[in-house]
C-alpha cells in the first residue's frame, strides 16, 4: 500500500500560478478554485472519518486499561480527564488465567504449522504447475483455482464426521490440516503465477549444470520466491490466527485457540468486559504488529486472496 499510496499522494500538483493550458499538464482555473475552496473541506471530512475509524479501537484499548468498577460507572472517554486511573490489572488477571495463556499457546501451535505447511506444499505444487509437464496440467490448475471461492462452511459437517472417524476431532493437528486444505488453492494460485514469471534461462542454465527437479526447485526457484512467500505467509498467518469458526467446530477444551476461548465469554457480555477487552486486545497485538511491519506484503496478499 505504501508504494501506491505514496505515489498517489504526490500526483496532485499544488495549486500555484495560473498555468498556461498549452504549456503541458496543468489544471484549469476552475479546478484550481475547487481545490482551493474544497481542500479545507476535504481535509476536515477525512479527519472526521479517520477519527470515526479510530474511535472503536481506542475505546477497546482504553476499556482494557480500566478497573471493572470504573467501567460500569462511566464511559471510557471520561478517562482522558483522569488518566491516573488506568491500570494494567485486567491484563495481569488475564495472563494469570491458565485458560487464556493455554489458548494463546494453542493459537501459536495452530497458526505456525498451518502457515509453514501451506507455503511448503503450495510451493511444490506451484512449481509443478509452472514448470513441469504432465497430462492435463492446465486443467488441474484451473480446478484448483475454482476451489478458491469454496466457502469454508461447506466443509464443516463433512470434515467433522471425517475427523471423528479418524480420531482427529478436537486435536490441534486436525485444525491445522483443515486450514492447510483451505489455504492451498490460494497458495498454489499465487505461487504458480509467481514461478511462471521466473526467466526460463535461469532454469535452463541450472539444468545444464545437471540439476534435477528437486535441486532446481530448492536452489533456483525458492531463493527467488521471497516476495511471493512473504505475501502468502503473512496472509495465511493472519487468516489462521484470526479464525474463529473453524476452531469453534474442530477444537475442544484444551486445544482451543484464543478466539474460541474469548467467544465463550461473549455470552455473558456486560459484566466481564475486564476479560473481553484485554483478551481481544492481546489477540490483536500480533496481527497488528505483522500489519504495521509488513504492510506491503499484507496488502498484496489481501488483494490477491480476498476472493477467499
Amino acid at each position: 500500500m505504501t508504494a501506491e499510496a505514496g505515489r498517489l499522494g504526490r500526483t496532485a500538483p499544488e495549486p500555484a500560478r495560473r498555468p498556461d493550458p498549452a504549456a503541458g499538464p496543468g489544471r484549469s482555473l476552475g479546478a484550481r478554485l475547487t481545490a482551493a475552496v474544497g481542500g479545507g473541506v476535504v481535509r476536515t471530512v477525512l479527519i472526521v472519518v479517520a477519527l470515526f475509524w479510530l474511535v472503536p479501537t481506542v475505546g477497546l484499548l482504553v476499556s482494557s486499561l480500566r478497573a471493572p468498577a470504573d467501567m460500569s460507572a462511566s464511559g471510557w472517554w471520561t478517562v482522558f480527564g483522569e488518566p491516573s486511573r488506568l491500570t494494567f490489572d485486567s491484563y495481569r488477571n488475564l495472563l494469570d488465567n491458565p485458560d487464556i495463556t493455554d489458548s494463546l499457546v494453542n493459537t501459536v501451535l495452530i497458526t505456525v504449522p498451518a502457515t509453514v505447511l501451506v507455503v511448503v506444499i503450495g510451493s511444490l505444487a506451484g512449481y509443478a504447475f509452472a514448470w513441469m509437464e504432465f497430462p492435463g496440467r492446465d486443467w488441474w490448475f484451473l480446478i484448483v483455482v475454482g476451489l478458491l471461492v469454496v466457502p469454508v462452511q461447506v466443509a464443516l459437517i463433512p470434515i467433522a464426521e471425517l475427523f471423528g472417524t479418524l480420531g482427529l476431532f478436537g486435536t490441534v493437528f486436525g485444525v491445522v490440516l483443515f486450514h492447510v486444505g483451505f489455504g492451498l488453492p490460494f497458495a498454489v494460485f499465487l505461487l504458480r503465477n509467481f514461478f511462471a514469471e521466473i526467466p526460463r534461462e535461469l532454469l535452463e542454465a541450472a539444468r545444464l549444470d545437471g540439476a534435477g527437479e528437486l535441486r532446481l526447485f530448492a536452489r533456483v526457484v525458492m531463493p527467488l520466491a521471497g516476495p511471493a512467500v512473504a505475501s502468502l505467509g503473512i496472509f495465511q498467518f493472519l487468516w489462521v490466527w484470526n479464525d474463529m469458526l473453524v476452531a469453534l467446530v474442530f477444537t475442544k477444551a484444551g486445544t482451543q485457540p484464543i478466539t474460541v476461548a474469548l467467544q465463550t465469554q461473549v455470552r455473558q457480555f456486560g459484566n466481564n468486559v475486564d476479560v473481553l477487552a484485554p483478551g481481544a486486545f492481546i489477540s490483536m497485538v500480533i496481527p497488528l504488529v505483522v500489519f504495521f511491519a509488513f504492510q506491503r506484503q499484507f496488502v498484496t496478499g489481501v488483494m490477491a486472496g480476498a476472493v477467499k
Binding site: G59, S63, M244, Q263
Partner: peptide, 15 residues
C-alpha cells in the same frame, strides 16, 4: 482488516 472478526465483534459490542 488485520484483526479478527472476533476482536472487531467485541469492539463493536462496546461501541
Amino acid at each position: 482488516m488485520a484483526i479478527s472478526m472476533l476482536a472487531a465483534g467485541i469492539i463493536f459490542r462496546l461501541v
